[in-house]
């Protein structure tokens, strides 16, 4: 893959956590490159280091060693505030447990990243949030609170929120992990549509069900990239 085609690059990335028992190495030297428009699935069993990888890639955590570059930005060198500003404009993050603001309506949850990024005026951001909620077919509940809707619906809102500032990259951490299979299918279909629209998606999962629908699968085991599939692929 030529360098100009690389949007995300992780080089020899390591991460150690301090524990009372001593350092625990969650990542032991990971090398990954992702091209624009790819739908990359990082698959592995629980404890393989998938969430750590997402945290490092999104800049919410810092690696112990190695380099992470996203669209020319050395994410591993960003300070906390710089990382937040960078994420606001360049990255949409989706979590397994949705992480919506419980006191805000769905519409406000989607407009919040626009408010932080300052890319849209309030009236435009509200219109855009409604458009995004419509795109994920949840606009009829726009003024409800997260606690008033189901898990699948919450994840749709989380996707709409991730798209709020129209970032080129979406990073998702087990987005279907807490959903039933039919809802998971709907959510995955939304991701596929986004890829067709030109987004790059970096998704970690331990669900073997969608393996064949990623444009590329990277297996992770014990903090290292491996060529060996970690579970049976149907």
């Amino acid at each position: 893959m030529p360098d100009s085609d690389v949007l995300i690059s992780l080089h020899d990335v390591t991460k150690a956590y301090k524990t009372p028992a001593g350092d625990f190495w969650a990542l032991k030297g990971v090398d990954i490159e992702v091209a624009p428009g790819e739908f990359v699935g990082i698959l592995g069993k629980s404890g393989a280091g998938k969430t750590t990888l997402v945290n490092l890639l999104t800049g919410v955590d810092h690696c112990t060693g190695g380099e992470i570059e996203v669209d020319g930005v050395a994410v591993h060198r960003l300070k906390e505030n710089q990382a937040a500003k960078w994420r606001a404009r360049n990255l949409g993050v989706i979590f397994q447990s949705f992480q919506l603001m419980p006191s805000l309506s769905l519409l406000d949850n989607v407009t919040l990243p626009m408010d932080f990024a300052g890319l849209y005026r309030p009236i435009r951001s509200a219109e855009r949030a409604l458009e995004l909620l419509r795109a994920v077919e949840i606009d009829e509940h726009a003024f409800k609170l997260p606690s008033d809707i189901s898990g699948g619906q919450q994840q749709r809102v989380a996707i709409a929120r991730a798209l709020a500032n129209d970032p080129p990259i979406i990073v998702a951490d087990e987005p279907t992990g807490r959903l039933d299979s039919s809802t998971a299918e709907t959510i995955f279909a939304i991701f596929e549509t986004l890829v067709q629209q030109g987004k790059t998606i970096f998704m970690v999962s331990h669900d073997p069900g969608f393996v064949r629908r990623y444009s590329r699968v990277i297996w992770l085991a014990d903090g290292l990239v491996t060529d060996e599939p970690q579970f049976d692929v149907k």
Binding site: R87, V93, Q99, M101, L112, F116
Partner: peptide, 15 residues
């Protein structure tokens, strides 16, 4: 926890 989420979706410390 909410502060953490806000930071993840782009909220800066000052905001």
């Amino acid at each position: 926890h909410q502060i953490g989420v806000m930071k993840t979706i782009g909220g800066r410390r000052g905001q």
